[in-house]
């Protein structure tokens, strides 16, 4: 990993308040930078069907500008139609390198990548028609800052699509999830977020929310962007 990135991480660690709940930046980069090579294998098996289904349901129109937040190694990128333009962002340079390879190898001319902090997006207001936020909410220090930023850069009435794990409604499962939260944080994932609380705090106007299968750890949320 380049020295500049370590420098950057140290700067961020100093800059960020220590009271942010959840995961810190250094952990995120360490975890996901290290995972970038095995990430595709894991994601293809467990997450890909849901990503494919959600993108296929986004009703993307010709000329739409789409933001993919936390694009990772770019598994989702070939799923977007060629008639829209997609901007993929991620905090991890290692992940983006993998994504960039895919873009080049597959000749995906409609894809652009940039390294950015999802909690502090460097785009003008109202830049995108649709925003795809897959498996990000649980792995950032402050999910609501991400949602505020996403709503800012998405046009009014634009579509927000979130795929994420939320705390189970079943008490026994929820208790187990609570117990494994410290462990899951070590692998870059928070398991104690409640979906109702998330929707309320993020002020989402949800049009549909569902699970792909009856027993599924992950929810898909479609929301219209209210400003």
């Amino acid at each position: 990993m380049p020295e500049t990135f370590h420098y950057h991480e140290n700067q961020i660690k100093r800059r960020r308040r220590k009271d942010i709940k959840g995961l810190d930046y250094a952990s995120i980069e360490k975890i996901y930078g290290g995972q970038s090579k095995v990430y595709d294998t894991l994601f293809k098996r467990f997450f890909y069907p849901r990503i494919k289904h959600a993108i296929g349901s986004m009703n993307i129109q010709p000329g739409d500008k789409v933001l993919d937040v936390g694009v990772g190694t770019g598994l989702s990128l070939p799923l977007f139609p060629s008639y829209c333009s997609v901007t993929g962002i991620d905090f991890s340079q290692d992940m983006l390198r993998q994504a960039s390879k895919k873009v080049d190898q597959m000749g995906l001319d409609n894809i652009m990548l940039t390294q950015m902090d999802a909690m502090d997006l460097k785009f003008q207001d109202d830049s995108f028609d649709k925003v795809f936020i897959s498996h990000v909410v649980s792995v950032v220090p402050d999910p609501y800052r991400v949602m505020n930023e996403v709503k800012r850069v998405c046009k009014k009435s634009g579509t927000l699509v979130i795929i994420n794990h939320f705390k189970s409604r079943f008490k026994v499962v929820a208790k187990v999830e609570e117990m494994i939260t410290p462990l899951s944080k070590k692998i870059g994932w928070r398991s104690d977020l409640c979906i109702e609380e998330f929707i309320e705090k993020a002020k989402l106007k949800v049009s549909k929310q569902y699970k792909l299968k009856k027993i599924d750890f992950w929810h898909v949320i479609f929301a219209a962007n209210e400003k």
Binding site: Q93, S100, L113, Q115
Partner: peptide, 12 residues
């Protein structure tokens, strides 16, 4: 711009 990817971080 590293490997064709803009690094939009103030620290960089």
């Amino acid at each position: 711009i590293k490997d064709g990817i803009p690094v939009m971080l103030v620290e960089e």
